[in-house]
């Protein structure tokens, strides 16, 4: 029996679970416009995972990267949820570099 996949699946569940938390907090303090940076970081982690020889490190880094990319696509809906009062709304967000350019991009949502 090979328990690697099952254990990795459970670890993935926790990483996705953390996603619920950081998307809510991240949108609250930093705002929607950080999405390209989060997506970029996710891609970077997945590319980095290709060069790690330890299977656990590579797999966990890959899953974390995927979770970051998914989370970046959740920022738009989370911003609307806060505007609706389903989550506390924060009018003073810490804006990212190049916020004026990112404003013109359509935030992804899947």
């Amino acid at each position: 029996m090979n328990f690697f996949g099952l254990a990795l699946g459970i670890a993935t569940l926790f990483i996705i679970g953390l996603g619920f938390v950081w998307v809510i907090r991240g949108e609250h303090y930093f705002g929607l416009l950080w999405w390209p940076y989060i997506m970029g970081l996710g891609l970077l982690l997945i590319v980095t995972s290709l060069f790690l020889h330890n299977n656990w490190s590579s797999a966990l880094l890959g899953v974390t990267g995927a979770s970051l990319i998914w989370g970046s696509t959740e920022f738009k809906e989370q911003a609307v949820r806060a505007e609706l009062g389903w989550y506390p709304f924060n009018p003073k967000k810490f804006q990212p570099p190049f916020a004026d350019i990112i404003k013109n991009w359509k935030a992804p949502h899947l």
């Binding site: 997945i46 995972s49 060069f51 590579s58 995927a66 998914w70």
Partner: peptide, 20 residues
């Protein structure tokens, strides 16, 4: 330098699992 595809496999499985 050899490439380890396990992270990419895990990433694709996680992303598709969440998305689908």
């Amino acid at each position: 330098m050899s490439i380890n595809p396990i992270g990419l496999t895990a990433a694709l499985a996680a992303f598709l699992g969440i998305w689908l």
